[in-house]
Design a protein around this nucleic acid. Structure first.
Length: 272
DNA sequence: CTGGGGACGGGGCCC
DNA sequence: CGGGCCCCGTCCCCA
């Protein structure tokens, strides 16, 4: 992800301090999002976003406005927004800032993919899902992800026994048992260097990811993404029990757990 | 109870 | 094959 050109100076913000230092165990993540990084590709037009060749991001749709008053949110996998991104923080440039489209339309991978397509380079496409890759090697690795867990090719993690059909995925998983990247400040260890990098920001107060709308800065890109959704006038995630709507899926999930489905089953809840 | 944010994990993809 | 990057998602805390 590249920042917009509106405000590209990076520097350290005063640390807000980590509110807590409790490193609790996390639940298993959900399966990868079927829509991948394209899930907000209908976001509003850029304001200030300059799709230069380095960024390579596609321009926003000519009329991407998400009709106000739209009551029914039928596709929670592709939330949209009427928010028009403007960077109006007149104060000192505090961080890189990301307009809505620049942030949501695509990610670095699809950006690179787009560049390759514009260059007209030959792509190797997966017959099962249609994804394309620059090399047959990459395609071969990708194809492993389509294997069934019952496949003879499936292998188990020697440490925890979790089965994988994709060898790269297994290799990545195995690394999670080897926490060799240690924080010099607090001693917390991580399996991958960029996890440590993100963690270090909690010590330094660095917040490289800024919201182009309100100027608020974040240390974590995912948190900026969630913040961006709070600027949306629309609450895309609706409880199927009480019809209440929420801007973020996590809020809806919380609602399911705490309120609407308290003491009952989540029969019509998450995952639809 | 909801909204917002901080911190982090697992896994896919590119080079 | 491995490193780096990015994504989605979760858990937790607080106002």
């Amino acid at each position: 992800m590249q920042p917009t050109l509106l405000c590209v100076s990076s520097f350290l913000l005063p640390s807000t301090g980590a509110r807590r230092n409790a490193y609790t165990s996390r639940g298993s993540p959900s399966p990868p999002h079927p829509m991948g990084s394209r899930y907000l590709q209908h976001c509003l037009a850029p304001a200030g976003y300059n799709p230069d060749k380095k960024q390579g991001l596609p321009p926003a749709p000519p009329d991407p406005a998400y009709a106000p008053g739209q009551e029914e949110y039928s596709d929670p996998e592709s939330p949209q927004s009427t928010f028009s991104a403007r960077y109006f923080n007149g104060e000192a440039a505090v961080t890189d800032s990301y307009s809505m489209d620049a942030f949501f339309i695509t990610d670095g991978r699809s950006r690179r993919r787009g560049e390759s397509q514009r260059r007209g380079s030959h792509r190797h496409s997966c017959p099962e899902c249609g994804k394309t890759y620059a090399t047959s090697s990459n395609l071969s690795r990708h194809k492993q992800t389509h294997r069934s867990l019952d496949s003879k090719m499936a292998r188990k993690c020697p440490t925890c026994g979790k089965a994988y059909v994709s060898m790269p995925a297994l290799a990545m998983h195995v690394l999670t048992h080897n926490l060799k990247h240690k924080c010099d400040v607090c001693g917390k260890a991580f399996s991958r260097p960029w996890l440590l990098q993100g963690h270090m920001r909690s010590h330094t107060g660095e917040k490289p990811f800024g919201c182009s709308h309100c100027g608020k800065a974040f240390a974590d890109r995912s948190n900026l993404r969630a913040h961006m959704q709070t600027h949306s006038a629309f609450k895309h995630y609706k409880c199927k029990q009480c019809e209440k709507t929420f801007a973020l899926k996590s809020y809806l999930n919380k609602h399911y757990e705490s309120a609407c489905f308290k003491g009952s089953e989540h029969s019509c809840a998450i995952g639809n």
